[in-house]
């Protein structure tokens, strides 16, 4: 009985505790990220943004949370009730499930699995189901159009994201997310004889892929300028039209968790994860999680600025960009990177 406890119950309890801690921190972080998104957008447009609840409006997201929970959820009469309520659950569960393998610091991943990046890719390719199910189950025209758009859009951009990930994996030689960060300890900078700096990270040698990944990430998470599934000026709010109160909140939460995931994935693949930008005693003393969060916030600032300054793409332009520009470009880059690694023997 004692061995049963120590071999099954205790590890399971530790795992559940770690997951709960990660989820709570993540949700609080998302609450502030939501506010930051609105603040950045407001400042670009010379508005103040939310500034009433708490100092500088810091508690706005929590006030919104209360409001969402206390309102009445309305389910349309013609809706497929079970699928309608399943859709927000699917989208939020999948978006949070991916975080199990993300290493926030050296050894801080809840599950440090061998095929980590594939797991992330697989789960994030399932996120489209929340949108399709929601759009279909609403039994209404705008949500259905939004769902169709999003299905085509997310499937198209996953292809180029896949190629970008493969290029990074070629340079690393492992599918483990922790190994991907370790591989960026040395790189282009150290090859030129410099000490360990931010020049070692993958963004520099793979700069075109970095740009493709960032833009495809915008499309994959339905962020502006690619927010066609919910384009409010054409489709009112797309697949979310019929949702209200808690189910709507879960769709939003899923969307923002997916955005955070793309930010942290960019950080891990291209910006060196938890590694400090300079090898200097004062900077090395700062814990890795701080660097990780700073980089994630930096990438998110880019995404928020893209929302504020770039006009929405037309649907045919979006498809053209995905299939005719990014796909050939990432394929060519993949071949070039593979050849360079093979000919120079850097692949290891």
């Amino acid at each position: 009985m004692d061995s049963f406890f120590s071999s099954y119950v205790w590890p399971a309890l530790i795992m559940i505790g770690q997951s709960l801690l990660l989820l709570v921190c993540l949700l609080v972080f998302i609450a502030f990220i939501l506010l930051a998104d609105r603040k950045v957008w407001a400042n670009v447009q010379l508005r103040r943004g939310p500034n009433v609840v708490g100092p500088f409006g810091l508690f706005q997201s929590f006030a919104d949370l209360l409001k969402f929970i206390l309102k009445e959820p309305v389910i349309p009469a013609g809706a497929d009730k079970i699928v309608f309520l399943l859709a927000p659950l699917v989208s939020v569960t999948l978006a949070l499930a991916t975080w199990a393998v993300i290493p926030l610091n050296d050894g801080w991943a809840v599950a440090n699995i061998n095929v980590g990046i594939l797991y992330v890719f697989a789960i994030s390719s399932l996120e489209v189901y929340g949108i399709i199910m929601g759009g279909w189950a609403s039994n209404s025209k705008y949500p259905f159009l939004g769902a169709l758009r999003s299905a085509a859009q997310m499937v198209s951009y996953e292809v180029s994201i896949g190629f970008v990930i493969v290029t990074v994996l070629l340079c690393v030689g492992s599918l483990n997310l922790t190994d991907i960060v370790y591989a960026q300890k040395t790189g282009l900078g150290t090859m030129l004889g410099l000490p360990n700096t931010f020049l070692d990270w993958h963004w520099l040698p793979l700069f075109p892929m970095f740009v493709i990944f960032f833009i495809s990430g915008l499309a994959e998470t339905n962020r502006p300028p690619f927010d066609l599934p919910e384009a409010e000026s054409e489709l009112v709010a797309g697949y979310m039209v019929e949702y209200s109160s808690a189910p709507y909140m879960m769709l939003m939460l899923g969307e923002y968790a997916a955005i955070m995931l793309i930010c942290s994935l960019t950080t891990i693949l291209f910006l060196g994860g938890w590694l400090p930008p300079f090898d200097f005693w004062l900077i090395n003393w700062v814990p890795g999680i701080i660097w990780f969060l700073l980089k994630v916030i930096m990438v998110f600032f880019g995404i928020a600025m893209a929302k504020a300054i770039v006009p929405r793409y037309r649907y045919d332009q979006l498809m053209r960009l995905g299939w005719k520009v990014f796909l050939p470009l990432s394929l060519i880059m993949l071949i070039i990177v593979a050849f360079v690694l093979k000919l120079t023997g850097w692949a290891g």
Binding site: V115, L118, Y119, F121, A122, I123, S125, L126, V128, Y129, I132, W136, L148, A151, V155, E158
Partner: peptide, 18 residues
């Protein structure tokens, strides 16, 4: 397992559903 998720659920089943 992961490839099954990516290919069959992420792409093929989306087209079916479509």
């Amino acid at each position: 397992a992961m490839i099954l998720l990516v290919v069959y659920i992420g792409a093929v089943a989306v087209l079916f559903l479509f």
